[in-house]
């Protein structure tokens, strides 16, 4: 087997011997990246668990103050976007250029809706003085417990903020893919970028599937 670099193509970079090898490497790479993401969010989930255990009552009150409807809407929006992402990957496997673009744009739009709703929710928080800081105040919580309530909102903003940051990155990736698809970069033989972007998008979706019940739902019954 000659080892000199072959002519490099997108589907076969010079360090690989076969296209299948390159696809395996890219997919495995994305899975490992997602594992690092789980560990990254894991630290936040741990902090949430510790403080929820320490201040269950205050966390219940704070949790109940979140906008349940908006959170639920966003969950549905995100689940739909995962579905359109699957359709985009499927279209890529079949080499249907127009369908890829259509479904990527749909996914992008749904992602945009999610971020829009999120922004609206944060704006409400701002007006209600639920932003951690000197003006923070949460009704229904004693003055000496405001710090604990603030802790809930700090975690809320850190976790949903980090999630939104991942959504923004995902939107960037989708935009990039749409332009690349328009240039005809992806064929039925080479659609790895669409595939791994799909993995990423589903991961971001799954993070929300954990965030929503943890932040919005878990203490509703205590009210």
């Amino acid at each position: 087997m000659a080892s000199q670099a072959h002519v490099e193509t997108l589907a076969l970079r010079e360090q690989f011997d076969t296209e299948a090898q390159q696809k395996d490497a890219s997919t495995l790479g994305m899975w490992i990246f997602l594992i690092t993401e789980i560990m990254f969010f894991g630290g936040m989930f741990l902090a949430y668990t510790v403080y929820r255990g320490a201040f269950p009552m205050v966390f219940a009150v704070a949790s109940s103050s979140l906008a349940l409807i908006l959170g639920a809407v966003n969950t549905v929006v995100l689940l739909c976007s995962s579905f359109t992402m699957v359709l985009a990957v499927r279209a890529a496997q079949l080499g249907q250029q127009r369908a890829i673009i259509l479904f990527l744009i749909l996914t992008l739009l749904l992602g945009g809706v999610f971020l829009g709703v999120k922004a609206y929710e944060w704006k409400d928080k701002f007006e209600e003085h639920h932003i951690p800081g000197p003006t923070f105040h949460l009704e229904g919580v004693a003055t000496d417990q405001q710090g604990h309530a603030q802790l809930f909102f700090s975690l809320y903003f850190a976790m949903t903020g980090l999630h939104a940051l991942h959504m923004v990155i995902g939107v960037g990736i989708l935009t990039f893919l749409i332009f690349q698809t328009r240039k005809g970069r992806y064929t039925a033989d080479y659609m790895t970028p669409v595939d791994v972007a799909g993995l990423y998008w589903h991961f971001v979706d799954i993070i929300w599937i954990f965030l929503f019940p943890l932040l919005y739902l878990i203490d509703r019954h205590m009210k």
Partner: peptide
């Protein structure tokens, strides 16, 4: 007792 002095509502 310490907590009840500093954070009585806890």
């Amino acid at each position: 007792i310490r907590e009840s002095i500093l954070q009585p509502a806890a």
